[in-house]
Amino acid sequence: MAIVETKELTKVYGRGDAAVTALRKVDLRVEPGEFVAVMGPSGCGKSTLLHLVGGLDRPTSGRVALNGQELSELSDDALTRLRRREIGFVFQFYNLIPVLKAAENVALPLVLDGVSPRKAQSQAQLWLERVGLSDRTDHRPDELSGGQQQRVAIARALASEPALILADEPTGNLDSRAGDEIATLLRRVVDEWKRTVLMVTHDPRIAAYADRIIFLKDGTVVDEAHLAGGNDGAEKLVRQRMEDL
């Protein structure tokens, strides 16, 4: 069973003359253990797709299913629980809570899920270690570099052991070196820790780390590419496709 499945997914913002169609009848399948990148020009609906899949927004029509569970059938509370347990989010601007230390930020989804603070804390330590930040557990976000903050965000996304990680331009705010580190880390998320990653990016170099790339234009899937992963040839191919768009 696909971990993510959308059928004729459509999202329209606004009404009447001001209506803008962000997504138009998108059909998408993401299999467990896949690393999928979504690419396309600005305003093509990449982020909208991610938000709908993550249950952060409701579609105008069509459906989204996560592990076979129809999201439109869920109440706000059920959707919240689902986000807490099944999905990990990584955002462009990290979105860490500024007043909490790194380990506390990572433990947050666990605490929200009722896990005991001690267990949540040890789990957080473990994940910070895995992302290479074992020496930064007591640092506040403003004491960390952008790349480090994003690694904390990835640790937080993984802490509750979700099956799916949704990353929205995770390297958009980073320099190329830090961007590569984050992309490598996401690759490890799939290869070592056996999670599924759905990532939105506009950077062909970062997209080249994925197994498969979906190209969107004007809210519609226009192309798809399967990659070997993380090599120059793949990056060239992606650049070429983007230019064609």
């Binding site: 993550g54 952060l56 706000d76 509370d77 919240t80 629980r81 986000r83 807490r84 347990r85 990990g88 989010f89 955002f91 601007f93 979105n95 860490l96 809570i97 500024p98 947050l108 989804p109 929200l112 899920d113 937080r156 509750s160």
Partner: peptide
């Protein structure tokens, strides 16, 4: 707004 939204995104309920 952003912090609250993030809390909601990672699974904090409205009540929380």
């Amino acid at each position: 707004r952003r912090d609250i939204g993030m809390l909601r995104a990672v699974g904090a309920s409205r009540r929380a």
